[in-house]
Design a protein around this nucleic acid. Structure first.
Lengths: 224, 224
DNA sequence: TTTGATAAGTTATCGACGTTAAGTTACAAG
DNA sequence: CTTGTAACTTAACGTCGATAACTTATCAAA
């Protein structure tokens, strides 16, 4: 039973009130395993082994395995939300903002395939079904501390960009909600396809990304 | 330990040379469980219980659990291939053929969400990676008896429609391969989104299907 | 008609999984 | 110095996919 952590407190019992540091250690170990060896290899027992505690100890800090994974993904999706927030604040034309936002979204998905798969592609756990109802809300109305919040915010921000476009008076072929859903689905399909079939002889990635954005924009907004 | 099959031969030992009928019984039971209770509930033991044999008996007919699931999905995807073959033979304008083919593809995915998820959305097993290299071939070059063949053929047929379109001399915004990939990714994204988030307050399905096809066609082929 | 190869099963078991129950240890406040 | 309790542990449960080793039924040949 090897111990893999090199931090000074690993394997030692935490002092009273220091439990949250153990929580962070668990997330760190889970992330390491998850990125290196994927979802299936990231078991409760292996995480616990890396941290240097027994398996049931993880249940002091997380309700179940899914909660660990959700927390992991939220952490990562937080970066995407950050990037999109920056883009939101720029004074670029709304269409250009959308294009960059779309590109940021796709590149984020491809850079974090495991987390993307887990949040958007893995099966429907009961938890996820419950969570789905929150996705329709505006970014501001989402409690950022609830599990799954970050991905919901990323999605909501992308949706919001389309409302901006309509406010800017650009003529669309569809109602704004439908347009937003269709474009997001296109981007999502690109990410999903490349993640789940990375060995497939696709066209070069950069061309597909630019191409999907072109196709989606041309297909949705009436250009001069 | 209840026995659930009502066919006369259920639970009784097969005569020599009749093993293939047991194989069919296993697939039937697996399909029943899979459709009613999803992937996780479809365990080797539960399938065996429905068939009326012991669990290890399934390994006489299938290499592992994944082989059962793949055979199931291939059976279902065969129907899609059939539909698409019919559309291929019609003398409609190539663009209209593509539209109908796209709609058939999406509706198939939504009508068979479990099978679609398992073939296109579930994680990358080693088997799938190996299988991916066959997807680039033409429909005729695929051995229809290999596992995973049906989904590969469905995909290849959709790709082929784009070659027809180019042969018909329609101007595209992209090279034909790229165009085919982009449109398929759009359709795929639509199916994936609706399957994995069925509770989400999306626009009405029919509108999304027609809309995605409109968006994709308008985004890819230069219309008069 | 008996025999024997073998198809078609069985039971027993393995190691791994997520998770829970119940017991233990160390620390900090009174 | 006691005592409550946070922070653990060990043991175990039920489930999973899968394998090994054994049994039973069938059919063809001797």
């Amino acid at each position: 039973m090897e111990r893999h952590l090199s931090t000074s407190t690993a394997g030692t019992r935490k002092k009273r009130g220091e439990g949250h540091t153990r929580r962070d250690e668990i997330l760190l170990a889970a992330k390491k395993l998850f990125l290196r060896e994927g979802y299936e290899a990231t078991t409760i027992r292996r995480i616990a082994d890396v941290v240097g505690v027994s398996a049931p100890a993880l249940y002091l800090y997380f309700k179940d395995k899914e909660a660990i994974m959700l927390a992991l993904c939220d952490e990562t999706f937080g970066n995407l939300v950050e990037n999109m927030s920056k883009l939101e604040k720029t004074k670029l034309p709304p269409l250009e903002r959308l294009r960059r936002c779309g590109e940021a979204y796709v590149r984020f998905g491809l850079d974090n395939p495991q987390e993307y798969w887990l949040t958007f592609l893995s099966g429907n756990t009961p938890k996820k079904v419950k969570e789905a109802k929150e996705l329709s809300r505006t970014p501001e109305s989402i409690d950022p501390n609830e599990p799954g919040a970050a991905s919901a915010m990323a999605f909501a921000k992308l949706m919001g960009m389309f409302r901006d476009i309509e406010k800017a008076g650009m003529p669309l072929y569809f109602p704004v909600d439908t347009a937003a859903e269709l474009v997001w689905m296109g981007l999502h399909g690109l990410v999903a396809a490349l993640i789940n079939n990375p060995e497939f002889p696709w066209t070069k990635r950069d061309i597909l990304i630019a191409g999907m954005i072109d196709m989606a924009v041309r297909g949705v907004v009436r250009l001069p």
